[in-house]
Write a protein that binds this DNA or RNA. Structure first.
Length: 631
DNA sequence: TCGCTTT
């Protein structure tokens, strides 16, 4: 009833059980009330400890000396070129380094969940393959191991052990783990293990299509196209050389996907001709997705598409919802659904599409997994209603916190023109080494800042939702290859994107939520690497400053006291802000009167809570000064 | 409010 469980490390190839004896007992927790809606942990029954953050599972890559130390420091000199980055690097055409990947720092992993519970934590992949309750064929495991090795993935990180163990034990899982901690592989690997074989080999093996070979066998839902493409690259990297069919849902792939659906293509939507005719309209929707093998497949084997299933479908909500609603794609046989960036997907913006998608996965044994680096209570509540038995909850580190390897600073820029001056100053003083990302609040501002920087001679490109997908793909690829040094981006790239070795993230415009702040700065400082985040602040940002200041402090960065003392906006003030949201002026425009009429309430808040910024402001809009962060 | 997500 009240169930307790222990997760024990299983002992990887190089794992010293004695040394980590104290760490074996990861967690013991009790659920007081399994029926109650708000299941609570008994704090007194809870204990948790550090899990080694990465374990060598081939036995041929000795762990880095610092890897198992209590408090490993990132390598002091961070050499980009020789770094073989995290998982998505495997998909990047540019990387083929043989050096060992860096790994995230060891962090407390907290697991809670219902019975039946995992009895051991699989700390290495062979163990994961053989100890799973799922019947794993050696046929499935061996090629995966080879592919991982080829992709230079030699160890499993903490979140991958924990989520992998949970999923392979058959549990629905909700995971909160920091940016850059390896969440993508944490669900990709166990999903591949559970699927065992590509749909195509299922077919050839039995001479006819099995039920499980139709439709999408596993579904990954993400909030942006760019993230879908990236994840597709990761999957392709670890399935290389096999017949796995991984597709990103786009206009170009839609047809093939619908045909593989049971009962698919029967909808009275003579959409084909339409689609092709429209595809040249505007500058949108080129047919050549960066998931190139898609078209290759469609061309070479179009004869078979009708009979074949998709192994892993990666989709954004809107198009998927559309297909499901129009009954052109059935998810009735889908057995695995993963909601990446799930707090975003469960937000009011996406929920109307996402909810029907989840409900369309009607198979009685569909396994669900929700992951994010941030998980507001409201999002978790929503997720819970879909988790069988409440699910297993995996929390790596401290929930909703920023990565500690990121050096976070605030820079008071005073005004709109002050922002541009500050940015130029960072560039000319070499404080903005490439690659770096610059976040702004709107498409328009992104374009303007981009044009300004082009005129300044910066190797820069711009990515936002207003650009054609092909242009977005190109800009991102150029950035990955190092041909573009700086990207000006909107919120579209705030989550999930894994660019190797991003040195600095600049919040040119202040993020609108604390979740946005955590995700944006999480584009740097990944996998234990050092990173730097610089956030520009103006008076108008006052109301949002406090929560960010709290995140900064809790992740080890000093912030001026007065920021923490700032009072929360009252309900009334929030209402005022909602009524008259900050209208940012054009980038590079005068900006002198930006603050003036922007609302006295906000100014009063800052003035009332203390000076410093106010003093700066008094000296004129061109004045900029660093807000004393290091003390 | 804007950002992102179909046709």
């Amino acid at each position: 009833m009240a169930s307790a469980f222990n997760l024990l490390t299983a002992g990887g190839a190089k794992f010293d059980k004695q040394r980590f004896k104290g760490d074996f007992e990861l967690f013991t927790a009790k659920r007081k009330d399994r029926k109650g809606k708000s299941k609570q942990l008994d704090p007194s029954a809870q204990s948790s400890s550090a899990l080694p953050h990465s374990l060598d599972f081939f036995g041929d890559h000795p762990a880095q000396p610092q890897a198992q130390a209590a408090r490993p420091q990132p390598t002091a000199e961070h050499d980009d070129a020789s770094d073989s980055g995290s998982e998505s690097d495997a998909s990047s055409s540019s990387s083929s380094s043989s050096t060992s990947r860096p790994a995230p720092p060891p962090q407390k992993i907290t697991l809670t969940g219902p019975e039946p519970l995992p009895t051991s934590l699989h700390t290495n992949l062979p163990s994961l393959l053989t100890h799973s309750s799922h019947p794993i064929s050696s046929r499935a495991g061996t090629p995966l191991l080879s592919a991982l090795k080829a992709a230079n993935i030699h160890s499993l990180w903490g979140v991958q052990c924990a989520v992998g163990g949970s999923l392979l034990a058959g549990h629905d899982t909700i995971c909160v783990a920091p940016t850059g901690s390896g969440k993508t592989l944490s669900y990709v690997l166990p999903t591949l293990v559970q699927l065992e074989d590509p749909a195509r080999s299922l077919r050839s093996k039995d001479g006819e299509v099995e039920e499980r070979g139709k439709g999408a066998r596993a579904l990954i839902v993400v909030p942006t196209h760019d993230l879908a493409v990236q994840i597709s690259g990761v999957v392709k990297a670890v399935t290389r050389g096999r017949n796995w069919r991984t597709l990103v849902l786009t206009k170009a792939t839609e047809k093939a996907i619908c045909e593989s659906s049971p009962g698919g293509g029967v909808a009275p939507k003579a959409a084909n001709g339409e689609n092709e005719d429209e595809s040249e309209e505007e500058d949108e929707e080129e047919d050549d997705e960066s998931t190139g093998s898609v078209n290759e497949f469609a061309q070479n084997e179009s004869v078979d598409t009708n009979a074949l299933g998709i192994d892993i479908l990666i989709a954004t909500p809107e198009r998927l919802h559309h297909l499901v609603e129009s009954r052109r794609l059935s998810l009735a046989l889908t057995r695995h659904i993963i909601m990446d960036e799930s707090d975003r997907l469960l937000s009011p913006d996406f929920l109307p599409q996402v909810e029907p998608i989840i409900n369309a996965c009607s198979h009685s044994e569909v396994q669900k997994c929700f992951l994010s680096a941030t998980m507001p209570a409201g999002a978790e509540e929503l997720a819970k209603k879909w988790l069988r038995d409440g699910g297993v909850r995996v929390v790596v580190g401290v929930k909703d916190s920023a990565v500690t390897t990121i050096d976070q600073t605030l820079l008071y820029t005073g005004s709109e023109s002050g922002k541009l001056m500050a940015l130029r100053n960072l560039i000319t003083t070499g404080s903005l080494p490439y690659p770096s990302l610059i976040f702004v609040q709107s498409i328009e501002r992104a374009d303007e800042l981009y044009k300004t920087l082009v005129l300044d001679g910066v190797k820069v490109d711009v990515v936002h939702g207003g650009r054609a997908k092909s242009k977005r793909d190109e800009a991102i690829e150029a950035f990955r290859l190092g041909n573009v040094w700086m990207l000006v981006v909107t919120e579209v790239l705030a989550r999930g994107m894994d660019f190797r070795g991003v040195k600095v993230v600049v919040n040119y415009d202040f993020p609108q939520t604390v979740q946005s702040y955590i995700h944006r700065i999480g584009r740097t400082g990944r996998a234990g690497r050092p990173g730097k985040a610089i956030t520009f602040i103006n008076l108008e940002d006052g109301p949002y400053l406090r929560t960010v200041a709290n995140v900064m402090r809790s992740s080890g960065c000093a912030v001026p006291e007065y920021m923490l003392d700032m009072k929360k906006p009252t309900k009334n003030e929030k209402r005022q802000l909602a009524k008259a949201p900050v209208k940012r002026k054009a980038v590079g425009g005068g900006g002198r009167d930006l603050v003036k009429e922007e609302g006295r309430k906000r100014r009063q808040m800052v003035e009332g809570s203390k000076r410093r910024t106010v003093n700066q402001e008094g000296k004129g809009q061109a004045k900029q000064g660093e807000v004393d962060m290091n003390e």
